[in-house]
């Protein structure tokens, strides 16, 4: 079983590497990722938001909705842990099966 998994994992890795063959090289300043959406953040964020830290500006404003989702995720996790572990010995189904 473990051999099969190993082979599967190696194949998966090769597949991922196959995908990287067409990618721009590491740190290429002319890659699409660096030339399409992001320059606008760098050039305009300070002017529009008065926040020199671009990460904060994008995090809090441009993609603020994502960040709200992120906060929600951790709230959800806290609630889930609370649901599972606080007073978890109540009336449980099939407990003593």
């Amino acid at each position: 079983m473990k051999t099969i998994i190993l082979i599967f994992v190696v194949l998966m890795g090769l597949f991922l590497l196959y995908g990287t063959m067409d990618m721009p090289g590491w740190g290429d300043p002319n890659s699409p990722a660096s030339t399409w959406v992001s320059p606008r953040y760098i050039e305009q964020a300070l002017e529009k938001t008065e926040t020199p830290n671009l990460v904060t500006a994008v995090l809090g404003d441009y993609r603020g909705y994502d960040t709200m989702g992120e906060t929600t995720v951790i709230f959800t996790a806290a609630i889930a842990c609370a649901l599972l572990l606080r007073g978890a010995t109540g009336n449980r189904r099939k407990e003593d099966e």
């Binding site: 938001t49 926040t51 904060t56 809090g60 603020g64 992120e70 906060t71 951790i74 806290a78 842990c81």
Partner: peptide
Amino acid sequence: RSLGILGVEVGVGLAVMTAMYSIILDI
């Protein structure tokens, strides 16, 4: 906008602190 970012950062900070603390207490 800058102040808005600050406001939400405070919210995030509060939420993250208490959420992690709550998880630690529970686990």
